[in-house]
Design a binder for these strands. Structure first.
Lengths: 217, 217
DNA sequence: AAAGTTGTTGAACGAACGTTCGAGAACGCC
DNA sequence: GGCGTTCTCGAACGTTCGTTCAACAACTTT
């Protein structure tokens, strides 16, 4: 991880360098509050030199959001291919989300805090990824709900509340005092799973799961 | 000289008018993205005329955040004086929060989305209210946890997850399709209460070990 | 009617904004 | 060495920003 100096004649690497530092600036001052001159200062690239790598400030924000979100979604899809048990799939969703959150706090903050800062046509592209991600989460939830759920609880509200717990993390998480990704994942999964389950459905879900592996003390 | 002077024309009412419309503009375009000229247009007050009511754009944001937050906190404290049962107190916290959320969506969005946009000394003043509010929520939670709670769940994480569910609402709530305050309160309280409570004796069903990729055979 | 206070305004200030452009440096290839 | 391509930059463009200020209208008090 060479955050200090990009190797010369490495345009792609320098773009990543710019994207990383831009994410930090946007995370600190907000998209509108940060100027391209701030980014020039943070990256060491001259003001006009930056425009060789992105054609506008909007495009720069789009590049950060798009690459981050695409990575999260594709990584989750890859991991889900190996797991079919509903409860484990939900845990994977939360784990994948939180892990990226804690390893890329700047990008994650830009992704969720500046989600209205993009104008068309960029906004539509990011919204499309967002919808695919939400649909996947909803699908995971439906698989879980089939095992028995608290009655009268809207699936939409439940899933959005889960996103609320996960995405709010960027507002308060302090790596010096707060738990790591695994513990945080455990806590959120714990609250959500017990929260949505029909009381008494817990043991039934375990006994019908076929494999009592996770029940062994 | 204080009481002898009669009430001025309607300066106070006009300030409220400005605060309301400013909150809408800030909610739509963000604090940095909105200009004082936008607010002039929205309120019908001339650009320079606005500065009779607030001495800077920062102060304007402070007035919006401070009055909103103070109202929420004081209203909650008043309501809590009548209720002592832990579960009802938690419900009151959520209900009070969500009710203000849905009746003042613009102010609530400015309150949570622009919480880092204030510079000292204003930021410190709002942070102080925020800490009092969080401490009150924590106190309510502790009263609840005394009745039995899932083991190994950090109170801090639990309370912040509750705030996550509540505060994320401004990102997705659409009054045309989404439930009203009461239903929304029910859903969040339901998830959170079941989520943190010690269910029966089988709370260890949720494995605290990682690597969920291998337990689905 | 004069004086004082309260509210409102258009015009302008310097600073900062996103973006552009032409010149030129650094390189791979002949 | 020449030559096109890739990359970099200082200087400047026009626009918008937050804020100020002197002047003035509206209303209250003397």
């Amino acid at each position: 991880m060479d955050t200090s100096r990009p190797t010369p004649r490495d345009s792609e690497g320098k773009l990543q360098h710019i994207l990383r530092h831009s994410a930090q600036i946007f995370a600190e001052r907000g998209f509108e509050g940060a100027s391209v001159r701030d980014i020039s200062r943070a990256t060491g690239v001259s003001l006009s030199g930056l425009y060789y790598y992105f054609e506008s400030k909007q495009k720069l924000l789009y590049l950060i959001q798009s690459t981050s979100f695409t990575y999260i979604l594709e990584q989750l899809q890859a991991r889900l291919r190996l797991v079919h048990e509903p409860e484990s799939r939900l845990r994977l969703l939360v784990q994948n989300h939180i892990e990226y959150f804690l390893s890329h706090p700047n990008e994650m903050r830009v992704l969720w805090h500046e989600e209205d800062a993009l104008d068309p046509p960029y906004s539509g592209q990011v919204d499309a990824i967002k919808r695919r991600y939400y649909a996947l989460a909803r699908q995971i939830f439906d698989g879980l709900a089939a095992e028995g759920m608290v009655e009268g609880l809207s699936p939409r509200i439940a899933v959005l509340s889960l996103f609320g717990m996960m995405n709010w993390v960027y507002k308060w998480h302090n790596p010096k005092v707060d738990p790591n990704a695994e513990e945080l994942t455990d806590a959120i999964v714990c609250i959500f799973l017990h929260g949505i389950r029909k009381p008494g459905a817990e043991e039934r879900a375990l006994s019908t799961a076929g494999s009592p592996a996770i029940n062994s003390d």
